[in-house]
Design a protein around this nucleic acid. Structure first.
Lengths: 249, 249
DNA sequence: AAATATCTTGCAAAAAAATGCAAAAAAAAG
DNA sequence: CTTTTTTTTGCATTTTTTTGCAAGATATTT
């Protein structure tokens, strides 16, 4: 049996049972324990499962409580959020706002990553509960029930006292000419302030958002330091961004 | 059976029954008591439950419906939180901090109550999502993972700009001579500041907490305006409090 | 205060994972 | 069709994780 066939069966069984056991699988598929183990490592690298002692489990298994409403298993988002991990180093202070992309990035932080994360997103704070080495600071302000974030002058004022290494900005539209745009006015103002509080700004864009324009402008491209995308850094459609000095990841 | 599978079953049972017993579980899952105990410790570290003597109870704010827990006289809590509703009137601004009592009070707000609630508790903000006429303002600051509240100088500074009608203070101990006491130092300081930001302070005490003294003092009795208790207002054991001008509810 | 149940701690056995290596199989190159 | 190269596989060894047990400490109940 070829490797790909085996891995397909592993994923199928995982989807059925929510968990797999390596020893059991090796007997079932008549291959050595090591082969199965290596398959599982490969599948984990692709972000298709989570390896645990004794087997593997479906990707967001024990964090299902916090992922309610966020549990979209989009292949591209998974790929993106993995790539985004390159942005972070120990002992940095990071500013992150709301949105599902940021949520998934935080969810995938390595357990031993030592960061200070400043955020206005409640779901983000909650998910970081599971990362013992991450210190979380919440921005206060008016609580926006739909987006589960804080906004307003109180959050703005708190930002004035802060200076962070990196701001991971969520957004709705990205266009080479117009820059970064958003659907919500109040948030767009806050994000402008956030960008000014950071040494570098990074955005993480699914392909769908590139070349999209929304109502409220947040900032120009020259304020952006990094663009995380699932496209290859050399992709010609990214020329416009690369030319403006944005580092493609 | 792999560890993660066991832990998933524990969480599932917990969500069904609201409480679990370690011995019972170890028999049900055919593993030693120690393994279950270690699982429960891990799950507690992740904030997915709360360990108690002999078992565990649901903890996450998403399943905070745990009115029935170990050692908690939930009948009394229900009675108390009902009584506490008398404290609130439309168009007031209320300051509420963390703790299960405050959580349950907020949970029982009438759906048509129009309030502004200022809080440093994430579970409280989340539960108020379901009350469309309540505006929520969150205090920013360092996020305390265990208690799911914000603390620290940033929260203190934000309080300086606020003046509220009523502060509903959570606490650990209440004694006629010593006053209100708490187990956690950082919180006790914040609560002092909160009390100063409010026209009136109310506390809501299950009988168990009355005549109890904890490590850190928050304030004297004369700073307290209302005491909500399940005892009758005329109960002689409340004389000490009534004499100090506290209104018994 | 005694009796019972539960918790903590350290330890050793068992299970599983990681690592390095060499044979076998498959793919690519000539 | 060989030969070379690469990939895959299984095995032995070392390391890590998990597990169950026992003894003493702590908590709860009677």
């Amino acid at each position: 049996m070829i490797k790909e066939e085996r891995q397909r069966l592993i994923i199928e069984k995982l989807n059925r049972d929510q968990k797999i056991n390596l020893v059991e699988l090796s007997q079932l598929l008549h291959v050595s324990y090591d082969s199965i183990r290596r398959d599982v490592i490969e599948l984990e690298d692709k972000g298709l499962l989570k390896k645990v002692h004794g087997g593997a489990v479906a990707n967001s298994y024990l964090s299902f409580k916090t992922t309610q409403g966020f549990g979209i298993d989009n292949q591209e988002v998974l790929h993106l959020t993995r790539k985004a991990q390159k942005l972070f180093e120990n002992h940095q202070t990071i500013l992150m706002d709301g949105g599902t992309t940021n949520f998934h990035i935080a969810e995938q932080f390595p357990k031993n990553l030592e960061l200070t994360v400043i955020t206005n997103s409640l779901p983000l704070a909650i998910v970081l509960n599971e990362h013992p080495k991450i210190e979380t600071i919440l921005l206060g302000g008016t609580y926006h029930k739909r987006y589960q974030i804080t906004v307003g002058t109180q959050a703005m004022r708190q930002l004035e006292h802060l200076r962070v290494d990196l701001y991971l900005m969520g957004f709705n539209g990205l266009d080479p000419n117009v820059g970064v745009t958003l659907r919500n006015y109040e948030e767009s103002v806050l994000k402008q302030k956030m960008a000014k509080s950071a040494k570098k700004v990074a955005i993480c864009a699914i392909t769908e958002k590139i070349h999209t324009i929304e109502t409220y402008k947040v900032c120009d491209l020259h304020e952006i330091g990094f663009l995380v995308t699932s496209l290859k850094p050399s992709d010609p459609s990214l020329n416009d961004f690369r030319n403006k000095g944005i580092e493609i990841i």
